[in-house]
Protein backbone atom coordinates (compact mmCIF):
# COMPACT_ATOMS: atom_id res chain seq x y z
CA UNK A 1 0.00 0.00 0.00
CA UNK A 2 1.25 3.44 -0.93
CA UNK A 3 -0.09 6.76 0.40
CA UNK A 4 0.74 10.39 -0.25
CA UNK A 5 0.90 13.68 1.58
CA UNK A 6 0.76 17.02 -0.20
CA UNK A 7 1.71 20.14 1.76
CA UNK A 8 0.71 23.32 -0.04
CA UNK A 9 2.62 26.11 1.70
CA UNK A 10 2.69 29.81 0.98
CA UNK A 11 6.06 29.60 -0.77
CA UNK A 12 6.62 25.95 -1.69
CA UNK A 13 4.45 22.92 -2.23
CA UNK A 14 5.82 19.60 -1.07
CA UNK A 15 4.75 16.08 -2.05
CA UNK A 16 5.76 12.84 -0.33
CA UNK A 17 4.97 9.21 -1.15
CA UNK A 18 5.06 6.75 1.71
CA UNK A 19 4.98 2.97 1.74
CA UNK A 20 2.85 1.26 4.36
CA UNK A 21 6.03 -0.02 5.98
CA UNK A 22 7.14 3.55 6.63
CA UNK A 23 9.66 3.95 3.83
CA UNK A 24 9.62 7.29 2.04
CA UNK A 25 9.48 6.42 -1.65
CA UNK A 26 9.53 9.83 -3.27
CA UNK A 27 9.72 13.53 -2.52
CA UNK A 28 9.13 16.65 -4.50
CA UNK A 29 9.30 20.36 -3.85
CA UNK A 30 7.89 22.91 -6.28
CA UNK A 31 7.25 26.64 -5.92
CA UNK A 32 3.60 27.28 -5.09
CA UNK A 33 3.18 30.31 -7.33
CA UNK A 34 -0.17 31.79 -8.23
CA UNK A 35 -1.96 28.62 -9.26
CA UNK A 36 -2.32 26.63 -6.08
CA UNK A 37 -4.34 23.80 -7.58
CA UNK A 38 -1.73 23.31 -10.26
CA UNK A 39 1.13 23.42 -7.73
CA UNK A 40 -0.46 20.59 -5.75
CA UNK A 41 -0.78 18.50 -8.91
CA UNK A 42 2.76 19.20 -9.94
CA UNK A 43 4.18 18.26 -6.55
CA UNK A 44 2.25 15.00 -6.65
CA UNK A 45 3.30 14.13 -10.20
CA UNK A 46 6.91 15.02 -9.47
CA UNK A 47 6.93 12.80 -6.39
CA UNK A 48 5.44 9.95 -8.44
CA UNK A 49 8.12 10.43 -11.03
CA UNK A 50 11.01 10.34 -8.54
CA UNK A 51 9.55 7.20 -6.98
CA UNK A 52 8.74 5.56 -10.30
CA UNK A 53 5.17 4.93 -9.27
CA UNK A 54 1.87 5.37 -11.12
CA UNK A 55 -0.86 7.50 -9.62
CA UNK A 56 -3.36 4.61 -9.44
CA UNK A 57 -1.00 2.80 -7.05
CA UNK A 58 -1.56 5.51 -4.43
CA UNK A 59 -4.57 4.58 -2.34
CA UNK A 60 -4.99 7.54 0.01
CA UNK A 61 -3.90 11.19 -0.20
CA UNK A 62 -4.04 13.82 2.55
CA UNK A 63 -3.70 17.52 1.77
CA UNK A 64 -2.20 19.92 4.29
CA UNK A 65 -0.85 23.49 4.48
CA UNK A 66 -2.68 26.70 3.60
CA UNK A 67 -3.77 25.30 0.29
CA UNK A 68 -5.02 22.00 1.73
CA UNK A 69 -8.52 22.52 0.36
CA UNK A 70 -7.00 23.08 -3.09
CA UNK A 71 -5.58 19.57 -3.25
CA UNK A 72 -8.48 18.50 -5.40
CA UNK A 73 -7.36 14.91 -5.69
CA UNK A 74 -6.93 14.59 -1.91
CA UNK A 75 -9.17 12.38 0.22
CA UNK A 76 -8.89 14.36 3.43
CA UNK A 77 -7.50 17.63 4.75
CA UNK A 78 -5.55 18.02 7.96
CA UNK A 79 -3.79 21.15 9.19
CA UNK A 80 -0.04 21.38 8.82
CA UNK A 81 0.23 21.81 12.57
CA UNK A 82 -1.08 18.31 13.20
CA UNK A 83 1.03 17.03 10.29
CA UNK A 84 4.31 18.54 11.42
CA UNK A 85 3.78 17.05 14.87
CA UNK A 86 3.01 13.66 13.40
CA UNK A 87 5.91 13.70 10.98
CA UNK A 88 8.45 14.89 13.53
CA UNK A 89 7.55 12.23 16.07
CA UNK A 90 7.79 9.59 13.34
CA UNK A 91 11.17 10.61 11.97
CA UNK A 92 12.66 11.80 15.22
CA UNK A 93 11.17 9.74 18.03
CA UNK A 94 11.33 11.47 21.39
CA UNK A 95 10.44 14.85 19.94
CA UNK A 96 8.77 17.03 22.58
CA UNK A 97 8.45 20.28 20.66
CA UNK A 98 8.42 21.21 17.01
CA UNK A 99 9.43 24.54 15.60
CA UNK A 100 8.19 25.07 12.07
CA UNK A 101 9.49 28.19 10.37
CA UNK A 102 7.89 28.61 7.00
CA UNK A 103 7.53 31.40 4.52
CA UNK A 104 4.86 33.37 6.36
CA UNK A 105 4.38 31.58 9.64
CA UNK A 106 6.33 30.36 12.56
CA UNK A 107 4.66 27.69 14.65
CA UNK A 108 5.66 26.22 17.96
CA UNK A 109 4.02 22.87 18.63
CA UNK A 110 4.11 20.74 21.74
CA UNK A 111 3.92 17.10 20.76
CA UNK A 112 2.72 14.00 22.58
CA UNK A 113 4.21 10.54 22.34
CA UNK A 114 1.92 9.47 19.52
CA UNK A 115 2.67 12.59 17.52
CA UNK A 116 -0.50 14.29 18.69
CA UNK A 117 -0.67 18.07 19.20
CA UNK A 118 -0.75 18.97 22.89
CA UNK A 119 -0.53 22.72 22.35
CA UNK A 120 0.59 25.15 19.69
CA UNK A 121 1.19 28.82 19.03
CA UNK A 122 1.82 30.86 15.94
CA UNK A 123 3.42 34.20 15.26
CA UNK A 124 1.41 37.39 15.02
CA UNK A 125 -0.34 38.25 11.84
CA UNK A 126 2.71 40.10 10.55
CA UNK A 127 5.65 38.23 9.06
CA UNK A 128 8.09 39.27 11.79
CA UNK A 129 10.56 36.51 12.42
CA UNK A 130 9.49 34.20 9.60
CA UNK A 131 11.10 33.02 6.40
CA UNK A 132 9.87 36.18 4.73
CA UNK A 133 11.99 38.18 7.13
CA UNK A 134 15.11 36.25 6.10
CA UNK A 135 14.19 36.69 2.49
CA UNK A 136 13.95 40.46 2.93
CA UNK A 137 17.34 40.48 4.64
CA UNK A 138 18.92 38.37 1.89
CA UNK A 139 17.38 40.59 -0.74
CA UNK A 140 18.83 43.82 0.61
CA UNK A 141 22.28 42.22 0.91
CA UNK A 142 22.06 40.88 -2.63
CA UNK A 143 22.51 37.31 -1.47
CA UNK A 144 20.71 34.11 -2.25
CA UNK A 145 18.34 32.87 0.44
CA UNK A 146 20.13 29.51 0.38
CA UNK A 147 23.52 30.95 1.27
CA UNK A 148 22.80 33.45 4.05
CA UNK A 149 22.83 30.83 6.79
CA UNK A 150 26.34 29.72 5.92
CA UNK A 151 27.52 33.30 5.60
CA UNK A 152 26.17 34.07 9.08
CA UNK A 153 28.24 31.25 10.55
CA UNK A 154 31.41 33.17 9.68
CA UNK A 155 30.48 35.95 12.08
CA UNK A 156 32.80 36.72 14.97
CA UNK A 157 31.06 39.83 16.25
CA UNK A 158 27.31 39.40 15.81
CA UNK A 159 25.25 42.54 15.64
CA UNK A 160 22.23 43.21 17.82
CA UNK A 161 19.29 43.43 15.47
CA UNK A 162 16.35 44.74 17.44
CA UNK A 163 13.77 45.07 14.76
CA UNK A 164 12.16 41.92 13.49
CA UNK A 165 9.69 43.81 11.36
CA UNK A 166 9.97 42.71 7.75
CA UNK A 167 9.16 46.19 6.54
CA UNK A 168 11.89 47.91 8.52
CA UNK A 169 14.61 45.29 8.41
CA UNK A 170 15.82 46.65 5.09
CA UNK A 171 16.50 50.17 6.32
CA UNK A 172 18.10 48.80 9.46
CA UNK A 173 20.48 46.64 7.44
CA UNK A 174 21.32 49.47 5.08
CA UNK A 175 22.28 51.70 7.99
CA UNK A 176 24.49 48.98 9.46
CA UNK A 177 26.20 48.56 6.09
CA UNK A 178 26.72 52.29 5.94
CA UNK A 179 28.47 52.06 9.30
CA UNK A 180 30.83 49.50 7.83
CA UNK A 181 29.51 46.46 9.66
CA UNK A 182 30.36 43.13 8.09
CA UNK A 183 27.72 41.25 6.16
CA UNK A 184 28.22 38.09 8.22
CA UNK A 185 27.80 40.00 11.48
CA UNK A 186 24.60 41.58 10.25
CA UNK A 187 23.27 38.23 9.09
CA UNK A 188 24.14 36.56 12.34
CA UNK A 189 22.25 39.32 14.10
CA UNK A 190 19.26 38.68 11.86
CA UNK A 191 19.34 34.96 12.64
CA UNK A 192 19.69 35.64 16.35
CA UNK A 193 16.70 37.96 16.24
CA UNK A 194 14.56 35.25 14.67
CA UNK A 195 15.82 32.73 17.19
CA UNK A 196 14.72 35.07 19.99
CA UNK A 197 11.25 35.42 18.46
CA UNK A 198 11.01 31.67 18.06
CA UNK A 199 11.97 31.12 21.65
CA UNK A 200 9.12 33.37 22.74
CA UNK A 201 6.70 31.15 20.83
CA UNK A 202 8.28 27.99 22.21
CA UNK A 203 7.88 29.33 25.72
CA UNK A 204 4.20 29.83 25.13
CA UNK A 205 3.69 26.14 24.56
CA UNK A 206 6.16 25.23 27.29
CA UNK A 207 9.50 24.45 25.70
CA UNK A 208 11.18 21.15 26.51
CA UNK A 209 14.41 19.89 24.96
CA UNK A 210 13.91 17.48 22.13
CA UNK A 211 13.21 20.05 19.47
CA UNK A 212 12.53 19.11 15.89
CA UNK A 213 13.10 22.02 13.56
CA UNK A 214 10.95 21.79 10.44
CA UNK A 215 9.71 23.90 7.56
CA UNK A 216 11.58 25.60 4.75
CA UNK A 217 13.93 27.57 7.00
CA UNK A 218 15.14 24.40 8.74
CA UNK A 219 17.59 23.88 5.86
CA UNK A 220 19.40 27.01 6.97
CA UNK A 221 22.41 25.92 9.05
CA UNK A 222 22.91 29.38 10.47
CA UNK A 223 19.39 29.28 11.85
CA UNK A 224 20.01 25.88 13.43
CA UNK A 225 23.11 27.20 15.14
CA UNK A 226 21.40 30.40 16.33
CA UNK A 227 18.57 28.37 17.82
CA UNK A 228 20.91 25.94 19.53
CA UNK A 229 22.81 28.76 21.13
CA UNK A 230 19.66 30.49 22.26
CA UNK A 231 18.09 27.32 23.62
CA UNK A 232 21.25 25.80 25.01
CA UNK A 233 20.18 22.41 23.74
CA UNK A 234 20.47 20.53 20.45
CA UNK A 235 18.08 21.15 17.60
CA UNK A 236 17.20 18.30 15.28
CA UNK A 237 16.91 19.06 11.61
CA UNK A 238 17.47 16.78 8.67
CA UNK A 239 17.16 16.69 4.91
CA UNK A 240 13.55 15.68 5.47
CA UNK A 241 12.72 18.62 7.73
CA UNK A 242 11.32 20.82 4.96
CA UNK A 243 9.05 17.90 3.98
CA UNK A 244 7.77 17.31 7.49
CA UNK A 245 4.27 18.59 6.80
CA UNK A 246 3.90 16.36 3.77
CA UNK A 247 5.38 13.40 5.64
CA UNK A 248 2.92 13.90 8.48
CA UNK A 249 0.10 14.16 5.97
CA UNK A 250 1.23 10.87 4.39
CA UNK A 251 1.29 9.27 7.85
CA UNK A 252 -2.26 10.41 8.46
CA UNK A 253 -3.12 9.05 5.00
CA UNK A 254 -1.66 5.69 6.02
CA UNK A 255 -3.74 5.66 9.24
CA UNK A 256 -6.92 6.50 7.37
CA UNK A 257 -6.23 3.91 4.70
CA UNK A 258 -5.51 1.21 7.25
CA UNK A 259 -8.56 2.20 9.23
CA UNK A 260 -10.72 1.94 6.12
CA UNK A 261 -9.19 -1.42 5.23
CA UNK A 262 -9.55 -2.91 8.71
CA UNK A 263 -12.22 -5.62 8.77
CA UNK A 264 -15.56 -4.54 10.19
CA UNK A 265 -14.63 -0.89 10.29
CA UNK A 266 -15.46 0.13 6.77
Amino acid sequence: MIVAGIDVGSTATKGVLLHADGRILGRALVPTGANVVRAAERAFQEALRTAGIEDWEVCFIVGTGYGRYKVQFGHAQITEISCHAKGAQFLMPGTRTVLDIGGQDTKAIKVGEAGEVLDFCMNDKCAAGTGRFLEAAAGVLGLDLAEIGDVSLRSRDPLRVTNVCTVFVESEIVSHLAKGRKVEDILRGVHNAIAARSLALLRRVGYEPGLAFTGGVSRNRGMVRALEERLGSPVHASEDSPFMGAIGAALYARERAEHAAAPGKA
Binding site: Y66, T79, E80, I81, S82, D105, V117, L118, F120, M122
Partner: peptide, 21 residues
Amino acid sequence: YFSEAQLRTRVDAFFEALEHR
Protein backbone atom coordinates in the same frame (compact mmCIF):
# COMPACT_ATOMS: atom_id res chain seq x y z
CA TYR B 1 -6.59 42.40 10.47
CA PHE B 2 -8.61 39.32 9.67
CA SER B 3 -6.75 36.53 7.94
CA GLU B 4 -9.20 33.73 7.38
CA ALA B 5 -6.62 31.19 6.24
CA GLN B 6 -4.44 31.74 9.31
CA LEU B 7 -7.39 31.59 11.66
CA ARG B 8 -8.77 28.49 10.04
CA THR B 9 -5.45 26.66 10.40
CA ARG B 10 -5.37 27.44 14.08
CA VAL B 11 -8.98 26.55 14.78
CA ASP B 12 -8.75 23.35 12.75
CA ALA B 13 -5.53 22.24 14.40
CA PHE B 14 -6.99 22.90 17.83
CA PHE B 15 -10.13 20.86 17.31
CA GLU B 16 -8.22 18.14 15.46
CA ALA B 17 -6.15 17.75 18.60
CA LEU B 18 -9.22 17.83 20.87
CA GLU B 19 -10.93 15.24 18.73
CA HIS B 20 -7.82 13.08 18.80
CA ARG B 21 -7.61 13.28 22.56
